[in-house]
Design a protein around this nucleic acid. Structure first.
Length: 285
DNA sequence: CACCATGTTCCTTG
DNA sequence: CCAAGGAACATGGT
């Protein structure tokens, strides 16, 4: 599912399909995902509005909408949570299980589906203001990153999940970035030296950029109607293996040999979430 | 049945 | 006020 690279790929997929389209109908099947926007207001703003553009910020999608006429543009914010998907379907297609919202377009329909309903499709965009710098932009600079890390007493792996530090890193790419930077996930954020901070910043950029580049070249199935659908599938289920999972060096590879030194990858739990790392390449000192 | 899961927010504690 | 830790949210896979 969705950390920054997956959301970026989804954005690129969606943009040509829905940019310029007008929303003709709105069906809300799970009001929770609109929170705190009311279904009534959601409908009022969306029905008849034109989708003039989509952008991404961290793991959020921002749909810029132009309502009927005279009204100023509004922003619709989408977040996939852990299991969310967004895709286009044909008008006649039946809705998949756990469809939360359906937007009827000129031809076809936009479906937001989310098994666990942790995601959002809402007019409340306040979450975006709290985000840290965009990791693949110039805003993510060494000085700011150094400062933010300095005051933290959390383990660096846990700190990387803090979206105010830098936006878009999730549990998978946090482990991947630390492996690439050869830094122990247990090292306290405030204890990284200048060389480590620099390596980590570069590793974050490299890992995310590579994931986007890789995802861009994979023939994806974003239809949302098949079991092993799309690149939002992680894990090691057999068969259709996307080399998406092959790309991950440590995540979900407990016990497998380290890609670099061959030592078994270790799994630990930090802040109630799994961390994967190589105990040799990422020594604590 | 038990445990695990790509994320965020809210509450509590220090 | 701020940082940090943990539960809660809801469902499915193994």
């Amino acid at each position: 599912m969705p950390e920054l690279p997956e959301v970026e790929i989804l954005l690129r997929h969606l943009r040509p399909l829905i940019q310029g389209e007008r929303i003709r109908s709105v069906e809300v099947r799970r009001t929770k995902v609109l929170t705190p926007t009311s279904p009534r207001q959601f409908r009022r703003v969306l029905v008849g509005a034109k989708i003039v553009g989509i952008t991404r910020r961290g793991k959020y999608l921002l749909f810029k909408l132009c309502p009927k006429r005279g009204h100023p543009p509004v922003t619709l914010l989408g977040h996939l949570g852990m299991t969310g998907r967004m895709f286009l379907a044909r008008t006649g297609d039946r809705l998949p299980k756990h469809t939360a919202v359906v937007l009827g377009l000129r031809r076809g329909k936009f479906i937001y589906q989310d098994t666990r309903y942790f995601g959002r499709l809402t007019l409340d965009i306040s979450a975006v203001a709290k985000l840290g710098p965009e990791p693949l932009s110039a805003d993510f600079d060494g000085a700011g990153f150094t400062q933010a890390l300095k005051r933290s007493r959390q383990a660096i792996k846990v700190k990387l999940l803090d979206q105010t530090l830098v936006a878009g890193i999730g549990n998978i790419y946090a482990s991947e970035a630390l492996f690439r930077a050869r830094i122990s996930p247990r090292l306290l954020a405030g204890r990284l030296n200048a060389a480590q901070v620099r390596r980590l910043r570069r590793a974050i950029r490299a890992v995310l950029a590579e994931a986007v580049a890789c995802g861009s070249t994979v023939p994806m199935n974003l239809g949302g109607n098949r079991k092993n659908d799309g690149f939002f599938h992680f894990g090691h289920s057999a068969g259709t293996t996307d080399f998406y999972e092959e790309r991950l060096r440590v995540y979900d590879r407990e016990g497998e040999p380290c890609w670099k030194c061959g030592a078994p990858i270790k799994r630990i739990v930090q802040a109630a979430r799994s961390t994967f790392f190589c105990p040799i390449c990422q020594r604590a000192n």
